[in-house]
Design a protein around this nucleic acid. Sequence first.
DNA 1: TGTCTGATTAACT
DNA 2: GTTAATCAGACAG
Length: 285
Amino acid sequence: MSQRKRKRVSTVAKKHLPPVPCPSESHTAVRSPQILGDHASPHAQNLTSHYFSKAAKEQLRLGQEFFDQPCINLARAFLGKVLVRRRADGTELRGRVVETEAYLGGEDKASHSAGGKRTERNAAMFMKPGTIYVYQIYGVYLCMNVSSQGEGAAILLRSLEPLEDQAVMRQLRSIHRREASRPLKDKELCNGPSKLCQALDIPRDFDRRDLATDPEVWLERDPLQKAAMSREVVAAPRIGIDAHGEWAAKPLRFYLRGHPCVSVVDQEAERQMHLGAEPEDAACN
DNA sequence: TGTCTGATTAACT
DNA sequence: GTTAATCAGACAG
């Protein structure tokens, strides 16, 4: 282990989400259309007008009834929805959910709530559907989950497609990186569970908040979700839980096939998916 | 582009 | 004392 690397991680830990000055244009919440090129969701540039209408915004927000569904259904339902983070200065950061994992609680040995185990840390998993569960991992990183129907069941949000405001997201992500490191591509801003927490400024004390009613963080349906969801959904084994035997192999990770913001592409799952199925969608590649 | 490595520290056993 | 739902950087091909 080099001292340089140790210093880097140490720096990350110490910084722990200090306030970030926003660029001057932040309040205007300017969207950068087609940031991800042809690989991103179709017609992304057309979303702008939808988001600027206040009345439309209210209609887009998803309420309690959305979250009140079985874990796997909810994990799939999250795909294509837009996570919104409203910061103290009024900036709204938006990202479309492109990858999730379902943690079923109880029998699911890979879940923090396996065996019905309830602790101070995972209490949010047992709270009403839509409750946010934020926890720290590896001493440095945060992960964001949302509880669903089912005792101790929750959805891990793994990756987002950055929609708005990428400049602020990049700045928030840079806090956790070395100054000399290369600039992040747009698709790298939120392509991991901890990265999306950094990019959307999700702090640990968002734990136990209600995604259905909270004024600082919520979920919206995408006015053009139909277009975004033209991609197939891949079901693959979850990431980073190899030690949990049979549960490690269950296809409880869901992502939009061919989307550039997915954190880990599972070639085998995609091959399996198409054995005997229709020809693949060329638009996804 | 893909693979490998090691850091941190709260939570848990 | 051990583990962990991750990440970025280094290096090989």
